[in-house]
Design a protein around this nucleic acid. Structure first.
Lengths: 113, 113
DNA sequence: TCAACATATGTTTATTTGTTCATATTATAA
DNA sequence: TTATAATATGAACAAATAAACATATGTTGA
């Protein structure tokens, strides 16, 4: 009985390890969520939920400094969460991927409960 | 023409602001994602993806110190991402909510591309 | 070419945060 | 109740990081 318990327990532990994704995948996953884990970036991402915006628009809209917005956009772009296109003097940013919207929505659903 | 452009631009800005969730909601959203934005916590959460585990199991499984795991579990519990039940000397932790699994899966999908 | 505007970037600083170590709490069994 | 096992917690330290400030780069029109 005790042995059986230990065996199934060992099996449980083993199955958890088997199912566990590789460390690298989990590291990347954490890095992804880290991008969403800052108020400023979340505000910026949400503002772009269904429209592209240029840096000054975002800064004005959200009462943030141009520098701060630009820095955060660079981080978001490096992480492939936003993309940009230049139009004259302005650079328009938008969400890079439908997943970004999904992740935002899913999180918001959880928060709103 | 220029005026029309400006008007629609103003309208765009206005509509963004209208759609933008309250700062408090966005703050909470960022706090939620922050919980997922650390490798250690992600590993712990994923290990519990479909089974409850006690502190020592997690520590052994993931080669983490007991203290570190306990600290992180407290943070996760405070954020309502995990729940716990005591059984004798052990405390078993598990994901608190189906949303947690959904958020993890959605993020992993994005990362795996 | 020069002035202005929009954006990007480098640096410094202050804050946040994860880990470690030591110790406290809680529960079980002898 | 004492020893031991499992977990929790407090404090100190080091690393990560967001914001501010100054300045650089790039773009347009006069």
């Amino acid at each position: 009985m005790a042995k059986e318990y230990l065996e199934t327990r060992e099996e449980l532990i083993k199955s958890v390890l088997d199912r566990q994704p590789a460390d690298e995948a989990l590291y990347n996953l954490a890095e992804l969520f880290k991008m969403f884990g800052d108020s400023t970036r979340i505000k910026i991402l949400y503002a772009m939920f269904d429209t592209e915006l240029c840096v000054n628009d975002i800064a004005g809209l959200l009462h943030l400094s141009q520098s701060s917005v630009s820095h955060q956009l660079r981080i978001l772009k490096t992480s492939k969460l936003v993309k940009s296109r230049r139009e004259g003097k302005s650079v328009f940013y938008s969400l890079d991927d439908e997943h970004v919207r999904l992740i935002l929505s899913m999180g918001m659903e959880h928060v709103e409960e």
